[in-house]
């Protein structure tokens, strides 16, 4: 392996890893907040991709401009999912964990089915002529950095900084942290638990929506597109530690690098082996994940 190929693998792994991190962080946030694993997380991402595609085709704007729209739309989707489904699932008296799993899993199946009905099963791509970044790439000393992934990775880093500021510097962030510490006690200081949960779901969905909006620039879009990404997101969250925002960032990058490296050293068909080996290794040493506190 030459130095150039090695650098290319590291660069590609890093860029993809930052996007994996952004996909995973919303999942981690929601889990940390209320111990619910959202099995419709990937479907949220798929909806964001269609939102971008729709905005590009119907309004005729660049996918970059469509990003805020997708993020806003996904905030509504996330909040609605909580108010319409999860809130009710949490009222179960027995087997509450199971009820939540089936509720969000059912939501995922529903979203996929309705999407296929509305958008058909065709593979969509953001049209090249309306896509400023699409297909463009810059070369640095023989290492190719695709512009969409580069910008996407930058946006992902900014999103993490923004999320960190939101959690540490704002009242909402404090309420979020407090609710996650003890959802019962916050009611005593006048925090409406339900409102925090609603906003938390909106925020979590927005983050994966942003990831979907980035992916839409360089990835094909269809109702089942999110399945492989969602699988990686669950591993990323478990690896970084359930509920940890910083953990999702570090784990996402690690997963991206592990995937790129395994695909080069082993036959590429085995590249997910690298990811799961990494996860198992961490599991043996730190069962709660790298930055988990549970």
């Amino acid at each position: 392996m030459t130095a150039q190929i090695f650098l290319q693998i590291v660069a590609s792994g890093l860029l993809m890893g930052l996007i994996y991190a952004l996909i995973a962080v919303g999942l981690s946030l929601i889990f940390g907040l209320m111990d619910v694993v959202n099995f419709a997380h990937g479907e949220f991402m798929m909806l964001a991709m269609y939102a971008v595609f729709g905005a590009v085709v119907i309004i005729g704007i660049d996918p970059l401009m469509a990003m805020p729209l997708a993020v806003a739309a996904l905030f509504v989707v996330g909040a609605t999912a909580y108010l319409g489904v999860v809130q009710h699932a949490m009222r179960a008296k027995a087997n509450i964990g199971m009820v939540q799993i089936f509720a969000t899993f059912g939501l995922a199946v529903l979203i996929r089915g309705v999407s296929q009905f509305l958008f058909t099963s065709d593979y969509r791509n953001v049209p090249a002529e309306r896509n400023l970044l699409g297909g463009k790439t810059i070369e640095l000393g023989g290492v190719f950095l695709p512009l969409p992934q580069l910008v996407g990775a930058g946006i992902s880093v900014l999103a993490f900084v923004g999320l960190w500021l939101l959690i540490t510097r704002t009242d909402f962030g404090k309420a979020l942290e407090a609710t996650r510490e003890d959802a019962g006690a916050v009611a005593l200081v006048g925090i409406d638990k339900n409102r925090v949960f609603t906003l938390g779901w909106g925020l979590g969905a927005s983050l994966v929506g942003l990831a979907g909006a980035i992916l839409a620039i360089f990835y094909y879009i269809h109702p089942d597109v999110a399945a492989p990404f969602a699988l990686i997101a669950y591993v990323t969250v478990a690896l970084g530690g359930f509920g940890s925002v910083f953990g999702a960032l570090v784990a996402g990058i690690m997963v991206g690098l592990a995937e790129a490296l395994t695909a080069t050293i082993l036959p590429p068909a085995l590249k997910s082996v690298g990811i799961y080996a990494l996860y198992l290794g961490v599991l043996f040493i730190r069962p709660k994940g790298l930055f988990g506190s549970l």
């Binding site: 695909a263 080069t264 590429p268």
Partner: peptide, 20 residues
Amino acid sequence: DIKYRANSPSLTAEVQQLKA
């Protein structure tokens, strides 16, 4: 002679080998 995983999220490493 590259066997890859169907429906992969990324094919960067694979294409890198084809290119080389």
